[in-house]
Structure formats: C-alpha cells, structure tokens
Design a protein around this nucleic acid. Sequence first.
DNA 1: CTAGTTTGTTTTCCGCCTTTACGAATAGAG
DNA 2: CTCTATTCGTAAAGGCGGAAAACAAACTAG
Lengths: 409, 409
Amino acid sequence: MERTDPVPGHPHPADPVRRPASQAGMRRQNLALVMAAVADAGPLSRAAVAGRTGLTRAAVSSLVDELMTAGLVAERGPAPSGRVGRPGSALGPDPAGPAGLGLEVGVRHLAACLVDLTGTVRATARADHAPQDRDPADVLRQLADMAQELMDSHPSPTAGAALAVPGLVTPDGVVAHAPNLGWRQVPAAALLAERLPGVPLTVDNEANLGAQAERWLGTGCADAVHVSAEAGIGAALLVGGRLFRGVRGFAGELGHVPVHPDGEPCACGSRGCLERYAGAAAVVRAAGLREPAGDRVADLARRAARGEEPVLAALERAGVALGTALAGVVNLVDPAAVVLGGAYAELGDWLLPGMRREIRARVAVRPWDPGALTVSALGRRGPVLGAAMLTVRGVIEDPARYASAVAAR
Amino acid sequence: MERTDPVPGHPHPADPVRRPASQAGMRRQNLALVMAAVADAGPLSRAAVAGRTGLTRAAVSSLVDELMTAGLVAERGPAPSGRVGRPGSALGPDPAGPAGLGLEVGVRHLAACLVDLTGTVRATARADHAPQDRDPADVLRQLADMAQELMDSHPSPTAGAALAVPGLVTPDGVVAHAPNLGWRQVPAAALLAERLPGVPLTVDNEANLGAQAERWLGTGCADAVHVSAEAGIGAALLVGGRLFRGVRGFAGELGHVPVHPDGEPCACGSRGCLERYAGAAAVVRAAGLREPAGDRVADLARRAARGEEPVLAALERAGVALGTALAGVVNLVDPAAVVLGGAYAELGDWLLPGMRREIRARVAVRPWDPGALTVSALGRRGPVLGAAMLTVRGVIEDPARYASAVAAR
DNA sequence: CTAGTTTGTTTTCCGCCTTTACGAATAGAG
DNA sequence: CTCTATTCGTAAAGGCGGAAAACAAACTAG
C-alpha cells in the first residue's frame, strides 16, 4: 500500500513539513506567530509579544511593521501599564482590516454575516426560504445578493468567504448530496463565485464549521467531539485545534455507527444504526407524532418543555442511543470535551441525562469527567459564525499569504 | 475550558509550531529533510536529493557534509547511472551509524533486537519466561543483560532503546497496569535505565509500537487502524504517519466499545463490550475449552486449523463482533487501512471473513474497499521491531538532535 | 579527441534573526 | 523639581544559512 496522500484542499491533519525551510518560510512563520499572539492574547505591546513568542524585541518590531503596512495590526495608542518604565503602545488586530464572510444555506433559512479580525460580528443578514421548491442556483443567487449588500455596507475589505451546507461537500466545493435541501451534485462554489468575484470561497459541511466556531468563539477546546444531528448525525472531530477529516474526508459519520447490531433496519441497508434511534425523524416517529410542517427540532423542544410524555420518552431513548455511540467514540479518541451542537443543542435538557449516564457507565476503565459533556454555546448560529471565522483564522494563521494576495492585485 | 495541553512525552499529533523560527531551526529541518530522503528513497546522489527535496545542490552538499561527519550518512562510491554526464556518488544511511535497540516483555517471552539506520535487523535475542512468578525488577534485569550482550557484540553505537509492554504505560515510563504480566505501577523506565546507562529509553504499549512497525517496515500505510487483541483489545490509530494518542493518552481503547449494549456483563461494570465477544479469554470460553497451559491464541489457531467446530463458531462470532466495532471506527475515522496485528494475526483466516462482511454492510453510505482490511505482515514480531525502529526513526526525523547529543558527550 | 551533459563544489549575494547599543518615556526617591 | 532606575522601541553591526551563478570534474556520444 502506498503512502496515502491527503485529499487536495483538505489538508492532512498532521501534515509534516516536506518542503525545504527557507528564510522566506521562516519570515512567514514568525509573521504568523506574532499575528496569532496579537489576535489571541488581546492588546499587547511589542515587548510583551517578544516575551510571549520568544522572539527578540527587534525582530518583533520588524514583523509588526510588516503586519501594520498590510493592514492587519493596528496601534491603539500608549497603554499606561502602571509599572515603572516607558509604557508600550498596545497592538491589536486591526478592526478596519480584512473581514470574513460567512454564508449558510439552512433547511429553512439563508444567513450571512461579516466578522472582523477581532472576532466581532459586524453585520448579519437573514432570510427565510423553502429550498425544496427552488432551483439551487436561484437560492445561491439570493444568498450572493444578501452577501453583496453586506459587503457594500461595510467599509473594510473581505478577505474570503465560506459557505455552510447541511450535506456532504467535496473538496472542490461541490455539494454531493444534501438530502434536507434536495440538492445533489450542486457546484455551489462555482455558482457563488460567479456572483462574488474576487472573493476566495470555500464550501464545507455545516457541522464541521460549527465545530470550529465552538473552538474559536465558544469553549475554545482544541480536542473535542462536536456532535451535530438533525439530518444525518455527524461528529466533527477536533484534534489539536484542527478538524480531522480522515483519508478521504468522510470521517465523523456517526449516524451509521451500530448501536443495536440486530436492531431496526436502516435506510443504509444495515441494521441498528444510531440514526434509527437518535435522528430527528426517528425521534418524531418514536414520539408518535406526524412530521411537523415547520422545524422538527423546535417542535420537539416545545412539546418536551410542555411535558408531553411520549416526546420525553423518545428523547430519553435518543439520548441513551447517542450516549452508547459516543461511549465508543470516547473510548476510541479520548477527547477533552464532547459538545452537543447545532439544532440538537436545544434538546440538551432532555438528551444530556441519558447520554451522560451511558457514557459514564461505558467509559469506566478510564477516568471520565461528566462535565466534559456539554451543550454548544453557539447552537444554530455556529455554522455561519464558523464560516466567517474560517477566513479570519486563515488570515491570522498565515498573514503572509493574505498580504501577498493583496499585493498581487 | 482551557486549551488542552499535550501530555508531556507524548507529543500532540497536530502540534502546531508555537516557537519562533530561527536559522538554527531551519538548518535542523533541512537536515531532517535530507536525512529522510536518503533513508526513505534508497541510494540517492546529492543532485537527486536536491531534485527531490527542492533544495539547491549547494545546500544539499553542505547538509550532507554535516550528516556524514555525524556518522549518519555514508557514501557508497560512484554510481554508474548509464546516462550521460558525470555520475553522482550514491548516498545512503550509514550502516555503521547509530542503531536502535528494541526490547519486549511478552506474556511468555523476553525479546531484544538491534536495527541499524537502513532498517536492517542486525542482531536478535530471545528467552522464554513466566513473568507471573517473578519480580518485575528481576525480569527487567534479565532483559537488560540480554540487551547488553547484543550491544557488546555489535560495533556501532546505540542511539536509544524502547521497551514494548502489553499494558498501559504512562508518559514517564511507568507500567501502570499490565494484567497479563501481573504488573502494577512498575517503574520500568527507571529500572531499565539503571542497567543500561547512557542509552535514552522509552516505554510504550506493545500495540502502539506494533502499529508503527507496520508503517515503517510493513505496508507503509500512514493512515491506518491497527487492531491488536489478546489481553485487552486495542486499536492503535495512525494519522498521517503519527500515532494518535488522544488528549490523555487513552485513545484506541477498543475493548470496551459497546457492541451489544444490553448484552453480557463485562468486568468493567458495563454490558456488551467488545472484549466479551472477541477477547482471547472470551473466545476460549465460547469454544467450550479450558484455559490452555500455553499460548491461548496459538492453541486456538491449532484447533481451528484442525477444524474443531466449536472453535470455528467462536472465532466466527468474534470476527463478527470485531467487525461491528470496527465498522463504527471506520465510519468515525475513515482510515486507509485496517490491520489485524499482534497475535491475532494468526487467527486472520478465521476472523477476517466475519469482520469483512460486517464492515462492508455497515459502511454502506461511504465507499469502502474490502481490500483495506488486512492481516499484519509482521505479526508477533511487530512490537520489538517497532521498538527498535522508534529510535531509528527518531534519528532520521531529527538528525540534529542526535548529532548534538553525541557532541555533548 | 571533441562536444555536450550532469555532478559536486566554490564564490558571491541576500535575507532574517540576534546582539549590542542608544534615545525615549515613565515611576519613584530625594 | 531633579535624578535615577527601568522599560520600551529602534538602529547598527554581525553571523548564519540558503539561493544564484560560475567552475572544475567525470562521464557519454559522436
């Protein structure tokens, strides 16, 4: 068997450096180091950056100069430290610097938002829609128009955009299959790029982006399993702060992990898959309800809050099934946190007890902190925010690339 | 939740560079680049190394000089290429360079071996023993004596040693628990280091080392799940060529992944864990046999080869259980290969069919190549070889560290 | 034997970080 | 208020490492 090459566009998680180290690369890396320090550790003087990164003050000065002329870092005037000595001038990510555009095609809505380098949401837009009745190209046209309006109303440049979609996306930005949208083989990246010229565009699964949002704006945990249900059930794996996609990009398919090997048949042809017990459709069915006209999860939450017995029982059962599957996951990847995200976060009150019980019982051989299982702080807004943050983090983690891209124009 | 720091001694799989890039680091990295090219791509001229790595010929010359004076690379005389032009002189890892020492405490044997920089096994030693009846310190003394003899009979220096143990090992080299040896809290690293002065020592789980041996000497696959059963059932996860250990180093605990949530009670307090269906002890019991005096797995293989019906049925059942658990793993981490290693490799003929069937049925939503499930080529020798290769690869992947360690003496 | 080609080394140059030194700006002591 | 100690940012010199270009060496082809 040959050495497995990473999927293009989806860099391998533990990509070893296989190219020569040059001074250019050294500079690039140190620019990133300084940029990350300034962005992550709040306002910092040059001397503080030097202390934190291990670089000398002289080197930091030079690097900061370059970042300032690139419009990525801004001086916020002198910062009275209270201590003896000349005060340093506080540096921070430039709020007028490049922003990231987040886009989302949801099952019942479109959303867009702009996030600046400081991680602040600067503008949002939202629209309801019913994608099943419309041509995908038409939907994306509308979304592009919303985005254009946002960008027009915002002074700073847009460094890039990302689109969150509830479905399987290939590395080249084609939505292979999004059952809840009724999309198949939709070249979303190409269609959007047409109407958003000059803006680098990425398309990814909504769960993946939601998981990264959680890391960047939520708990900040770098090694987590982010469970996102509703359509399929996906588990985005965060390893050392990076998304783990597997060799072909199919990692995290939790929906068809077997929980009752001889149980109910699943649409996939097998039996007893998690989806049959914890998927939104399965829960609705188990609760004896008809498919609601509106939002399935919201409907379940409403009924559960009202105390409807069959709904409570169905959610309990779903929680236990989720817990069983997640026990396997925890045994296998030993994460620091397990987060219930996406729409299912709203059902946390009823799902978590069963999940916690199961995981605790089945991870007995290793220490397991029940507090490691939590509900997403971002919930449904995770994917759009993550999409916007994706380009923001891209700029922060490789400012040289952004600077040279700007210089090329 | 704070950013999770990696366990000391067990580096985080996706460790981002958090320190400044310096010219020293640059040199270090390029030395490693050249060393890896020379070691992995066979005999290569300087010009070929330059072409392969992207460095200039001049830079390669300088780097190779340094590696040669460090005794890591050797010239093998002119290599007539047959093509026009001056022939290059072939470079290879120096066979007289530092060797790696592999050590193993097995359930019924001790083993040691020396592997040189080319990956060739230069010497081996083996002894039977019954660890249950002996003091761990005594066992390790004997092993150290075997190792010393090996090193004395071998001219080249030993760069380091690694010990493979069938149990849970903490990052500081303490065997926390090895049920099959009857060991608990044995400070193996300290005990061995006492008798092997001057040799850097690592201790790790046998399955982890076996999995890496498979990558370095076997299939070469960089993204694999290496299943190793017998005592507990462990799955070593290889991600991008690196071992994935999880946040606290507990990743890969396959034995307690639930396969029949309401099934037979397990020693861990839960129910239906994989170990209850596919562990060697469970198979022996299911086959209606008594615990054999000798090797459990070898006994099963013998009986299965003879066609004993109950044994065949028990193995079939174990294969199905393994397949169910691995289907979950494949769905979750999307590996390029699944390898059945360790002692269980000898049962492959009877386990694989059931495993293959289950995985195929339960990974239906994604493409899955049945050929990706294989039996280890190294089998029981994997752990020792992996242990020896660990230091060899350490030297190849960071030759500067070895060179400076030698210079310090 | 000559022309052409490839290899390995030497030389020059450039970029980047470090070291060292210096002016600037503050707090605290007298 | 002045002086000193301290810290910050910058500037100049130095060292190191790779890139580019040039050159000698060794081989094939005619």
